[in-house]
Design a protein around this nucleic acid. Structure first.
Lengths: 341, 341
DNA sequence: CTTCATAATGGGAACGTTCCCAAAACAACT
DNA sequence: AGTTGTTTTGGGAACGTTCCCATTATGAAG
C-alpha cells in the first residue's frame, strides 16, 4: 500500500517525460500528446499503479465533480427515489452524487452544511429541516432546495404543489360521498408544511360548504410511530363513527401504520373507515387493502432539481427558479364508495 | 458570493498576524495562540466570512474526514439502516459519512471505486455487486466489506451468517409441521449468495432426512418484481398444494410482494400457504398477515463495520478481521401451525 | 533551404492549507 | 543582568495537481 506515495513526478520520471505531459494525459482536458508518449505514460501509470489525487487537482481547478444530496431520511422511499432521479440525471454529466441523510437532526444537517461550505462539493440539492434560508444562501455553493418553502426567496426550489395535491385527495373523498373528513399531518420543524396541508383542507371545506371541526385535525409525526398514535387517538374520539367517515393522512408511512393499527382494533380500512395517503410509497400497493393515495412525482422532482443545479453550477449568478409539480391521484382500495348507500 | 476568494492570507492581513497563526486558529490541532490574538483572528474570520478550504487542508494532511458507504440500494431499508448505524458510530469520531447507491450497477460501482481511489475518502464501507476482491484491495483506502464472501481473503468483513439464518427459518417451519419446503432465492451477480442459502437448504433437508426436490427451488431476483414472478411460477406448478406446504423467501421484499400476489389469486398467506422471509424489513410488520421472518441484525452489522473501519484507518497494516452475526427468528403470522391437524 | 504555422513538450508558478523549524517575546529563576 | 525555559509568532517549504507561457520539434508551403 505504499502506492500512496506515487505522484505524477514518479510517473514522469519512469516515462521519461515532464510532469506537465503526464498531467496532460491524466486530465482529459485536451492538450495534445503524441501517440507514443501517451502510450509510454500510460504504461508507466499502469506499472506504478499510479492513482490521481483528485484532492490536489481539485485544489487547483476548484472542481470536485461531486454533488451532495442532503435529505432527511434515505430509508423513506420518497427521498431515496428523488436521490436516485438526481443520480440518473447527474452521472451522465460526469458528476458523482453522494447522499447525506440527516434523520431530521439539525446537528447532522449542520455537519453537512459545513462539509458543503468547505468546498467539498460542486453543488448541493437539499431538503432542510431547519428552515434556515439565510444559511443556505451563505453556503457559497450552488444549491437547490427541495420542498416548497414560501419563505424561500431568491433560491432555486423544486417541489410538489402540496395545496393542489391535498385538494385532489379531498376532492376524491368528496366525490365518493365523504363529508366528514379528518386530517392528520405534522408540524415538523417548519409550520409551513402543516399550514399548507391544513390550509388546503380548510379551503376545501369552505369551498364545499362543509363545517370545519378542529378536533378532526390530528397533529402527529409523519412516521410509523405517528401512525400508531394517530389510530389510537382517532379511535379514542368518542362516537367517532358519526363524527368522521374518512381520514386524510399527511403521508403514506403514516397512513400505512395507521391502517395496521386500526386493524388491530378490528376496524377494517376500506370497509369501516376510508383512508387516503400522500406520496405513493412503493409499499402503498402492498398493503391490505392497497392504499389509495396522492402521488408526488418524485422522479420529476429529482430530475428537475438536478437540471436546475446543473444550470446553477454553470451560471451561479442567474435568476433563481421555482418549479412546482402537481400531485396525482392513485386509486386503490382504501377508500369506501359511500355513494352506494 | 465572492467570498470564495478569501484565504487565510486575507484573514491574516486583517488581523495583523501571519498566516501561520491563522492556521493555528482554524485547525484545531493545538498550537498555542494568545487569547487576544485568537479573538482578533476570529473577528477577522467573522468579518470576512472566511470559510476554510478543506480541499487544500486535505492535500496537506491527507485526511478528508469523510467515509463512503457504498451499498446497492438506499431504498432498501436493510441497507439504509446499516448506513445509519455506521453514521451513528462514525460521527462522534468526527467523521462524516456519505452514501453511494449503486443500484446494482457495475458501472456505478466503478464510479465510486474511482472516487475512493482518488483519495477523496478516508475509508470505505461497501457491499460489492461484482465480487472483485482484488479491486477492493487495490483501492488504496481502508475498506470494510459487508457480506460474507467466502472468497474475501485478507479483507475486513462483516456480515450475517446466512447459512445459520437460513437454518433457523427452516427449523421453525419444520417445528410447525412443514415437510415440503420450497426455496426462493437469487443468483444475483455472485453465485455465492445463492449457494449459501441453497446449501443451508440442502443441508437442512438432508439433516432431517427430507427429500430434495429441485423443482421446489425458485431462482428469482430479490425484489418486488421477483416476488410477483415467484408467486406466479409457484402457483403454475401443477398440484402445488400437494407438492409444497411452505415457501422460504430469500428476503422480505420478495416475500411481501409474493404474498400480495398470492392474494390476488385467492391464496391467503398464513392460511393456504406458509411464507417466511429474511431480513425483517420495517414493512414486514405492516403486511397482512404480518410476515414471519429471520431478522438480520443490521444495527450490529453497521456498528461492527464502522468499528472495524475505525481500527483499520488507524492501523492500515493490521490483521484483517471477519465478523459474522447470527440471524434471529421473528415470529408473526405468515406461517401456519400445521401440527394441529 | 527558408519560413511559418502547428503540434508536442517542459518549467515555473499557483491553488490554500499544514508542518517544521527558527526567532522573538515573556517569565521565572540564579 | 544573565541564564534558562516556555509560550507565542513568523517564514519557508511541502502536499500533488493544473495552468500559463516559453521552447523545441515537426511538417507543410513557398
Amino acid at each position: 500500500m505504499k502506492n500512496s506515495k506515487i505522484s505524477i513526478y514518479e510517473v514522469a520520471r519512469l516515462a521519461g517525460v515532464s510532469k506537465s505531459t503526464v498531467s496532460r494525459v491524466i486530465s482529459d482536458r485536451g492538450g495534445s500528446v503524441s501517440p507514443e508518449t501517451l502510450e509510454r505514460v500510460n504504461r508507466a501509470i499502469e506499472q506504478l499503479g499510479y492513482r490521481k489525487n483528485s484532492i490536489a487537482a481539485g485544489l487547483r481547478t476548484r472542481k470536485t465533480y461531486i454533488v451532495l444530496v442532503m435529505i432527511p431520511d434515505v430509508a423513506n422511499p420518497f427521498w431515496s427515489e428523488i436521490a436516485r432521479a438526481v443520480q440518473d440525471k447527474l452521472e451522465p454529466e460526469s458528476y458523482s452524487v453522494v447522499i447525506g441523510s440527516t434523520y431530521w437532526s439539525e446537528e447532522r444537517e449542520a455537519r453537512y452544511y459545513e462539509l458543503a461550505q468547505m468546498s467539498r462539493f460542486d453543488g448541493v440539492i437539499l431538503n432542510s429541516v431547519t428552515d434556515n434560508i439565510e444559511l443556505i444562501k451563505k453556503l457559497g455553493v450552488p444549491a437547490v432546495l427541495i420542498g416548497e418553502r414560501v419563505a424561500a426567496q431568491n433560491i432555486d426550489t423544486v417541489g410538489t404543489d402540496t395545496m393542489q395535491a391535498t385538494k385532489v385527495g379531498m376532492q376524491y373523498l368528496y366525490d365518493l360521498g365523504h363529508r366528514r373528513i379528518a386530517l392528520a399531518t405534522s408540524e415538523h420543524g417548519s409550520e409551513r408544511y402543516l399550514s399548507l396541508r391544513a390550509r388546503a383542507y380548510k379551503d376545501f371545506l369552505h369551498e364545499k360548504g362543509l363545517p370545519f371541526d378542529p378536533s378532526l385535525v390530528f397533529s402527529v409525526n409523519l412516521n410509523e410511530e405517528g401512525g400508531r398514535e394517530l389510530a389510537k387517538r382517532f379511535l379514542a374520539m368518542p362516537d367517532w363513527r358519526n363524527r368522521a367517515d374518512s381520514l386524510f393522512c399527511g403521508n403514506d408511512i403514516l397512513a400505512i401504520a395507521a391502517m395496521s393499527e386500526f386493524r388491530k382494533f378490528g376496524i377494517i380500512p376500506g370497509i369501516d373507515i376510508s383512508i387516503i395517503g400522500m406520496d405513493d410509497v412503493p409499499a402503498a400497493s402492498q398493503t391490505y387493502p392497497p392504499l389509495t393515495t396522492v402521488r408526488k412525482p418524485r422522479e420529476r422532482i429529482g430530475q428537475a432539481a438536478a437540471e436546475l443545479l446543473l444550470k446553477r453550477m454553470e451560471n451561479p449568478a442567474g435568476q433563481p427558479e421555482k418549479h412546482l409539480f402537481p400531485g396525482e391521484l392513485v386509486i386503490r382500495d382504501s377508500v369506501i364508495d359511500r355513494r352506494k348507500r
